[in-house]
């Protein structure tokens, strides 16, 4: 449980082109490999298998794949029943539906009896394949973070997705695993040691701390490169487990620079920014900026335009860091 572990090789080196891999592809392959290793693993789908890529598991293990049709509530409660029989169910649908249509089924069937079900939320954030505000998910972290007994994991790249899938199957308690649709930069090496509940330092710096979750990680690293050229050294702490929060790592990373920017592709209410503010408010009051969606729904548009309009680019992270460091001058 330390913030000292550095997940990225050449942490402070110059920007390198990173290979791009879609989290959903990594997820689909990880499920297939997990399914080979662990016969307890079953997958439930609500008619989105080709989008979420659980179709790969369905092809490999048809007897352990349950297609329930367009019925997220039923799917979630069926998963609870399978968990009582000793299976490790992964439910699969979009994040917006998993976190809202089936909230009560998660609460009663999974969280209260503390069953080892992995609720996966695909297409999270704004980049939901030009489907707009009905299919974008800006609340799911907040909803599931407020659910007692729930662990919330938001991987930052394909390597972390794969590691989280394997770790989740062994966890034995409710997990919400937040996934994304489109290719994003691979940040971590294959030797990355992911652990549930542990935040990782991916870049050392003394001037301002950026805490990321999900795909804001590569955007924050890009921002850190830009800032370094301006003489601002950003410290980047990646927080894949938003709940339970790695309190020690968060407090230490805040103390290190005295300034904190949180970055998440989610509402600034109730997500990583909220979680960090709650902890720092009690342990180590720190001036903060929260980069995220400003309590609004999204819209359908190309990815780059969405990220720009809703303030989720590397530029937005860098600008928040500049604002904070300027308070010192």
């Amino acid at each position: 449980m330390s913030a000292e572990r550095t997940g990225e090789a050449a942490a402070s080196g110059p920007a390198l082109p990173r290979p791009m891999v879609a989290a959903r592809d990594a997820f689909g392959q990880a499920l297939v490999d997990l399914g080979a290793a662990d016969p307890r693993v079953v997958v439930l789908d609500a008619d989105l298998a080709t989008s979420t890529k659980v179709s790969m598991f369905a092809a490999a293990y048809p007897d352990r794949f349950f297609e329930v049709g367009i019925a997220e509530q039923n799917m979630t409660s069926i998963a609870a029943g399978l968990a009582t029989m000793g299976f490790v169910p992964f439910t699969s649908t979009f994040a917006c539906f998993a976190s809202k249509r089936a909230t009560d089924q998660i609460r009663i069937g999974i969280a209260q009896p503390r069953l080892g079900v992995v609720i996966t939320g695909a297409y999270s954030g704004l980049l939901a394949g030009k489907t707009g505000k009905t299919h974008q998910s800006v609340q799911d972290i907040a909803i599931l973070r407020s659910m007692p007994e729930m662990t919330v994991i938001v991987p930052g790249d394909a390597v972390e997705v794969r590691a989280a899938v394997f770790a989740a199957a062994e966890y034995g308690a409710p997990i919400y695993l937040r996934l994304t649709r489109d290719p994003s930069p691979v940040v971590f090496g294959d030797d990355y040691d992911f652990r549930i509940g542990v935040a990782v330092t991916v870049r050392e710096g003394a001037d301002v701390t950026v805490m990321t979750t999900g795909l804001m990680l590569p955007r924050a690293l890009e921002a850190a490169d830009t800032l370094a050229a301006e003489g601002i050294q950003a410290h980047v702490l990646h927080v894949p487990t938003v709940k339970p929060l790695d309190v020690k790592a968060v407090v230490e990373a805040a103390e290190r620079t005295g300034l904190v920017v949180t970055a998440e592709e989610h509402n600034v209410l109730g997500g990583l920014g909220g979680a960090v503010a709650e902890v720092l408010g009690e342990h180590r009051p720190t001036l903060m900026r929260r980069v995220g969606i400003r309590d609004t729904f999204g819209e359908s548009a190309p990815n780059d335009q969405l990220l720009q309009k809703y303030g989720l680019t590397a530029h937005d992270v860098a600008q928040a860091c500049r604002e904070l460091t300027a308070t010192r001058r």
């Binding site: 069926i78 029943g81 009582t84 299976f87 009663i108 069937g109 209260q112």
Partner: peptide, 30 residues
């Protein structure tokens, strides 16, 4: 509530038990 001997699942928010039963039946079949 689970934990009491003989009880396998939580219930009380209506309408969910038949789905849980499906999961149990699928699990038994598997």
């Amino acid at each position: 509530f689970v934990g009491l001997p003989g009880i396998d699942t939580c219930s009380g928010s209506l309408g969910q038990g038949l789905s849980v039963g499906i999961g149990m039946a699928l699990g038994a079949r598997l």
